[in-house]
Nucleic acid binder design. Structure first.
Lengths: 140, 140
DNA sequence: CTAGGTCCTAGAGTCGGGTCTAGATCAACA
DNA sequence: TGTTGATCTAGACCCGACTCTAGGACCTAG
């Protein structure tokens, strides 16, 4: 049931380097144990945590904030309201990102549609061109 | 109708430094003109482009790709299919980001709900704690 | 016994996207 | 007239998050 750093790298999608780096940065929920020869050993639960951790990262939680979260968890009982607040803040943040991306997407769809229309009608040459100030940017 | 770099900075939300940097990087749709004394002058359409540009950036389009896009537009007629392809690729990318964030959000909502429940019941001390291997990580 | 593969540490390097500094110019106001 | 404030350039610096290197240890297979 013990996993080497290489196996964890493969299964988590993180590089061996990144795993060591995360450890230095205090991003592991439980301290990484070692074999007598100094090699790291991991377990399934480390993979579970890394999966969560990766989600937090890719949704924009910085390494310091992740560290703060696991430090709270490590301290044990008593700080649950802080952990909850931290999670809620990130949740808000993720929701805001989604709204912003959705907005961008609307703009993009408009642009794509305009291009498609004009190309379909062979009017491509009437699209916006920076060197023709009379064309409108809204169809660039 | 002419705008100084300071005004553009204020209205676009970008710093004057960033505006000069973007110019060096070739990210302006039309080349930035100068007053006889060397100062840059901008116009409303630059602000419009910057608004789009900022959306592209914040949705993850890299500066090189933005440059590629405006270079295509600058070349004028003939490459509309490429521009369209570039936009579509980014659109796909944005859609993927939204899906991923949505997934993260689902996980976060679960976690938040679990914390709320447990706190409400005063069972906070039974939540996952890395030093108690018998607690489950799914409620960390 | 040795060659290959995995692992270790400390620390340097990279990359994207800015941000800041130094030293100069210029316009407007008191 | 002289100070303030905005601007200019070239280039140095910063930050986050890795990524890689050098130099060494250890294990297993041939």
């Amino acid at each position: 049931m013990d996993l080497s750093i290489g196996e964890v790298a493969q299964r988590s999608g993180l590089s061996v380097h990144a795993l060591r780096f995360y450890e230095r940065e205090g991003l592991f929920a439980n301290p990484v144990r070692r074999l007598s020869n100094g090699r790291r050993i991991y377990h399934e639960e480390d993979l579970e945590w890394l999966a969560i951790c990766t989600k937090l990262r890719s949704s924009g939680m910085s390494l310091p904030v992740i560290r703060q979260y696991i430090e709270l968890a490590r301290q044990g009982t008593g700080n649950e309201p802080e952990r909850l607040a931290l999670l809620r803040r990130h949740q808000d943040h993720v929701e805001a990102q989604i709204r912003e991306l959705q907005e961008t997407l609307d703009v993009m769809r408009d642009k794509v549609r305009i291009y498609e229309d004009h190309l379909a009608r062979g009017e491509a040459d009437r699209l916006w061109n920076p060197s023709h100030p009379d064309t409108k940017q809204c169809s660039d």
